[in-house]
């Protein structure tokens, strides 16, 4: 990134140098379809709980390391969760308890 571009966010990558395009795709998993569906519903005309711009702001606030580390729908999950916490729709304690219960149900050590 040149000096004149120092204000660019990490998501703003147009024109950057990058390697070959990996054309290998993957079939979307159900949880990925569900987080996509959740965003469509929460931002839709009936609920109006999240604006698309808020999702972008939340994704662009994850920080460059997290942004690079997470897959596409993991970013959405992190961003939508952050927005639901921010708006007080769910609490961190409720989320933690749910995750712990789901891990226990799957026999996945926390």
């Amino acid at each position: 990134m040149s000096e004149g571009e120092a204000h660019r966010g990490y998501h703003d990558m147009g024109g950057d140098q990058a390697g070959a395009i990996d054309q290998e795709g993957h079939a979307y998993l159900l949880w990925e379809k569900r987080i996509d569906a959740m965003m469509v519903l929460l931002s839709g005309p009936e609920k109006k709980l999240i604006r698309v711009d808020e999702l972008r702001r939340a994704i662009e606030s994850l920080g460059p390391d997290v942004y690079e580390d997470l897959s596409y729908y993991e970013r959405w999950t992190a961003a939508i969760t952050a927005l639901m916490l921010e708006k007080g729709v769910v609490s961190q304690a409720e989320l933690d308890a749910k995750v712990a219960a789901m891990k226990a149900a799957r026999g996945d050590a926390a």
């Binding site: 939508i80 729709v89 789901m102």
Partner: peptide, 12 residues
């Protein structure tokens, strides 16, 4: 994050 999606969905 797959767990978090599940947890968030169930809570909502």
């Amino acid at each position: 994050h797959r767990y978090i999606e599940g947890a968030l969905r169930e809570l909502l």
